[in-house]
Amino acid sequence: MSRWFRSYWDEEDTWFYFEVGDDGWVSRQVELEGPARRPVAAASAGDVDARYGFTAELPVTDWEGHIEMPMTFQEFEEVWRAARHRLMDLEV
């Protein structure tokens, strides 16, 4: 079963949104940068298109120094769709 959470990195003013599987690996990831929350990534583990960015290279169990703020699937999905749409539009 998947779980969803977000985490804020204040050094870069970036919000990270994650969908994580039971194994701890990120299956989908969104990164929103700055006060306008500009999408810079909306990647899934199976993506081969670099325009969407990449998912984390380590399982969440190996991360240090992040605070997980739980989300619902619906909340994550809204952020995912908006970021993915925006990144797609930037390439056109």
Rank of each mutant, 00 (worst) to 15 (best):
D49L: 09
W63Y: 06
S7I: 05
W25D: 03
E11A: 14
E91P: 03
W15Y: 09
E77Y: 08
E77A: 08
R81P: 04
E31C: 01
R6S: 06
G21P: 06
W63Q: 04
G46N: 13
E68S: 03
V60Y: 00
R84L: 06
D62K: 13
E64W: 07
E57M: 02
D22R: 05
A42R: 05
W80V: 14
D23H: 03
A36T: 11
E64V: 12
W25A: 01
D23E: 11
P39T: 05
Y8A: 11
Y8W: 11
F5N: 01
R28Y: 09
W25P: 08
P39Q: 04
L58F: 08
P59M: 04
V40K: 07
W25M: 07
A50W: 11
D23F: 05
Q29S: 01
G24P: 09
W4P: 06
L32H: 05
S2V: 08
M69T: 07
A82Q: 15
W15A: 07
D47T: 06
G46H: 10
R86W: 10
A43N: 03
A56C: 07
V60R: 05
R86N: 10
G24D: 06
L87P: 12
A41D: 00
G65Q: 09
W4L: 02
R37Y: 03
A41R: 10
Y17N: 00
E33Y: 10
G46S: 14
R3Q: 13
G65F: 02
E12A: 13
A82P: 05
E75F: 00
G65D: 11
E78L: 11
G24E: 04
E68A: 12
Q74C: 01
D23P: 11
E31G: 00
Y52F: 14
E64P: 00
V79T: 07
V40S: 12
R28T: 08
A43R: 02
V79P: 01
I67C: 04
P35W: 13
S2E: 14
M88R: 13
V20T: 02
E57K: 00
E31D: 00
E64A: 14
Y52P: 08
H85F: 13
A45C: 04
A42S: 12
P35S: 12
A56G: 02
H85M: 14
Q74A: 14
T72M: 05
V48A: 11
D10G: 13
D22I: 03
L58I: 05
V79H: 01
F73V: 01
V26L: 03
F73M: 10
G24C: 06
A41G: 01
F18K: 03
M1Q: 14
G65V: 11
T14R: 09
D47K: 06
L58G: 00
D62E: 15
Q74G: 06
W4Y: 15
Q74H: 08
F73K: 14
E68D: 04
V60I: 12
D22P: 07
A43V: 04
D10F: 09
P59I: 01
F76W: 07
T61C: 11
V92Q: 13
Q29D: 00
A42H: 08
T14H: 06
M88K: 15
W9I: 08
D13R: 07
V20A: 00
V48F: 12
R37K: 15
E11P: 02
A56Q: 06
R3T: 08
A83F: 10
S2Y: 12
V20Q: 00
F54C: 01
E57P: 00
E91F: 15
E75C: 01
R81Y: 09
E68T: 00
